[in-house]
Design a protein around this nucleic acid. Sequence first.
DNA 1: ATATGTGCCGTGTGTACTAATGGTACAACT
DNA 2: AGTTGTACCATTAGTACACACGGCACATAT
Lengths: 133, 133
Amino acid sequence: MEHIKPMQISIDIESATPLFSQLVMQIKQAVQDEKVKPGDQLPSIRQLAYDLDMNNKTVAKAYRLLERDSVIVAKGYRGTFIHPEAQANCTIDLNKWVRKELTNTIQSFRQAGVTDSEIRIAFADVLNQSTGV
Amino acid sequence: MEHIKPMQISIDIESATPLFSQLVMQIKQAVQDEKVKPGDQLPSIRQLAYDLDMNNKTVAKAYRLLERDSVIVAKGYRGTFIHPEAQANCTIDLNKWVRKELTNTIQSFRQAGVTDSEIRIAFADVLNQSTGV
DNA sequence: ATATGTGCCGTGTGTACTAATGGTACAACT
DNA sequence: AGTTGTACCATTAGTACACACGGCACATAT
């Protein structure tokens, strides 16, 4: 049994921001503050869920997103670790990029006279029709 | 009192497609089939609503959309008429363009690993934050 | 046996939107 | 007075989704 840094994470159950999102942000923050460094092992999903008193799935969701952003690396039964280039990848905000793109697209629609309602419907259709990843 | 062509419109109350949408489509179809021609007067909103047994607002919504697409022209107390270039404007499908743009945007998001769920949330945020038309 | 990440099945609650309905009122004209 | 399009107030039912929760199972390793 290895010693794993106790991850000073505080979850606010009252906050409006989702639990999984709080987790993601705080872990990214810890990486940027160099409180954790590449190669460091993270608590297991089940363990962290127990410590923070939340469901496994919620923690798993946070881990899944962090891995997609290459901030952590899951190695199956061996555990989960901080990604070698975690710090650099933390600054890449996929979300901001998405919003920027969407803002431009939506604005062009509006200028063409398309109703917000119509935009929503078209968006929902497109997102559902073509099979997602 | 002028004679107005009786607008052979049949609304299917059971259909999944919204009533206002059925109206829009059928009027556009009538224009393309040349059953109505530029300058022809349309029934008033209230009259058509009475004939089709639906609410004024529903018909008004259809008229509003048709006017935005320059298929009809509302002249206030004088009534509503078929737009001079209605036929040409019928073929311009604003909706198709919107979907095409959205399809491209969404696909680029997906390829970047963004979850559909994340896309939805970002989309809703952007649409609500910036003031719509 | 025990632990790892991961997958699929489901439930419940809250939110947000569409679609359609109704009422009332206005200015501008015949 | 009556009609036109249009604007504002509102409610109702239905749908869709996010979020968090729970149980069960798997392969892979120590």
